[in-house]
Design a protein around this nucleic acid. Structure first.
Length: 494
DNA sequence: TTAGGTTTCG
């Protein structure tokens, strides 16, 4: 039901809208919130003719006034509203100046024209991809018989442009396979940002830069090789190359790139168009990418890490602590043992977050990762027990201090894991959902690979002392495995 | 607006 007509004689709009969520006022709008259980109201003050986007779909702009009083009481009371796709055909002939409309399942984004038109700093965007619905209560039709159109949502046929046919200035929809990406991070402006490079069988690549009010609006890419579908990207030239930028109404679907994985899109969109042609496109891109070994990076476990290399680690967070103003220590494990001598990162036990019994029990399998600068903000917000992918960890070689005392014997070189500042090479920390295929594999590795039970009595008595002073919370998944372990270790009292 | 893949220098 993309468009529904209501009549005033059927009672207050609020009553007719029961079950559609709560009314939210324009000055309460926030960027990045999901407006699936809220509706907004407004009177149409300006209606623009619809026009066609470069993608072939239509867009239709109206201006809504929160109050029917004229002129609007503040610039926040007047807001630009953009309707995309199939919904345009339903709305453009029905909606008239002076009509009262109610919008549900809309998106809120920044209005690029707020500085010029003096209207609200945000704008509404509706499309079949957000499940957007327009309710209209038309003044002119108050006395007519009720017209409630219950029209099946007509899904538009989107056109996808092969990457070698993309032209400067175009607005396009594209499919591709992720060749490189940066996990979403906070830009120096107001948005979250991500950079993605995609490739397709036309053997062309496309660099993309996307902005969104929160990380959820950006493509949910977990690894190189994921298949992506982007709607409404603007093509422009930068540094003598073409580049895609997120345009108004931008939306993304991401699929696991593995041949046998279910074709289940990851997206923030409430509804989206996905036809058999899309299914075939994802299958085709998966086949092509899997035959093209250059696209995939093999996953590295802690047991495989070589000194001096950079790698992505899929792991679980066991503990964390601030180190200094520019660094945080994350204690993580992936169920395998790193065979190298690892430098111990000293931290203040008062500011260490984590269960001391758990830290002790897993001490042979955990590694400390020092994360610097911009990454400390993300690290601070992480909850213990979370599954992470830390991208571009540096296995930095440290020189053992024993060398200076005995130069004739080669001291075993040690390693220290660091996530340097910045976002170069896709450096960043991603939280992986528990149901992602990589976390499913990781969980198996964590369950099957407990440390051998070699605790000395000394270790255990130390553990008791540590635990008696610990009031730190333990995440559910860790504590359950911990409880099992405690049955095997009667001397340990948690 | 922001960033615009391309290694820290702790």
């Amino acid at each position: 039901m993309p468009l529904q007509q209501l009549r005033e004689c059927d009672g207050p709009i609020e009553t007719q809208l029961s079950g559609k969520g709560e009314w939210i006022e324009y000055d309460k709008l926030q960027l990045g919130s999901a407006y699936t259980d809220k509706y907004v109201k407004g009177t149409i003050s300006v209606k623009y003719p619809s026009c066609k986007l470069g993608t072939g779909e239509k867009v239709f702009k109206i201006v809504l006034e929160e109050s029917s009083l004229q002129p609007p009481t503040s610039n926040q009371a007047s807001i630009n509203t953009f309707i995309f796709g199939e919904l345009v055909g339903d709305c453009e002939n029905v909606l008239k100046q002076g009509d009262t409309v109610v919008l549900t399942n809309f998106q809120v984004s920044k209005s690029p024209s707020a500085g010029q038109d003096g209207r609200h700093a945000f704008q509404f965007e509706l499309s079949d991809e957000t499940g957007g619905t327009v309710f209209v209560c038309s003044r002119a039709e108050n006395n007519l018989a009720p017209i409630i159109r219950r029209q099946k949502v007509g899904m538009k046929d989107y056109t996808y442009v092969p990457l070698n046919r993309i032209k400067d200035g175009a607005l396009v929809n594209v499919y591709g396979v992720v060749k490189f990406f940066k996990p979403p991070y906070r830009s120096k402006g107001t948005d979250y940002c991500t950079t993605v490079t995609i490739v397709d069988p036309s053997d062309e690549k496309l660099h993309c830069v996307f902005f969104g009010g929160n990380a959820d609006q950006l493509p949910k890419i977990y690894k190189v090789g994921d298949v992506v579908r982007f709607h409404r990207v603007k093509i422009q030239a930068f540094n003598h190359e073409l580049q895609a930028i997120s345009a108004p109404g931008f939306s993304a679907l991401t699929f696991d790139g593995a041949q046998n994985a279910p074709i289940k899109p990851r997206t923030a969109s409430k509804s989206y168009c996905f036809k058999s042609t899309d299914q075939r496109m994802v299958e085709e891109l998966r086949r092509w990418a899997n035959a093209n070994t250059s696209i995939f990076k093999s996953g590295i476990k802690l047991s495989d890490v070589k000194p001096a290399e950079y790698f992505d680690l899929t792991c679980q967070l066991i503990a964390k602590a601030p180190v200094d103003r520019s660094a945080m220590m994350l204690k993580v494990w992936d169920g395998t043992k790193c065979p190298h001598v690892l430098k111990h990162v000293p931290v203040d036990s008062k500011t260490l977050e984590g269960d001391l019994g758990e830290i002790h029990r897993l001490r042979q399998l955990t590694v400390d990762v020092l994360v610097y600068d911009n990454h400390t903000n993300v690290a601070n917000s992480l909850k213990l027990g979370t599954y992470l992918r830390i991208c571009n960890i540096h296995a930095k070689v440290t020189t053992a201090s024993t060398e200076k005392y005995n130069e004739s014997v080669d001291a075993e070189p040690g390693m220290e894991f660091q996530l340097h500042g910045g976002t170069s090479y896709g450096r960043g920390i991603m939280v992986l959902p528990s149901d992602s295929s990589d976390v499913q594999q990781l969980k198996q590795s964590l369950q099957s690979d407990f440390p051998s039970d070699q605790d000395s009595m000394e270790d255990l008595s130390q553990l008791d002392i540590l635990n008696s002073s610990s009031e730190l919370s333990v995440p559910q998944e860790i504590s359950s495995t911990c409880v099992e372990r405690c049955h095997e270790e009667p001397a340990t009292v948690l």
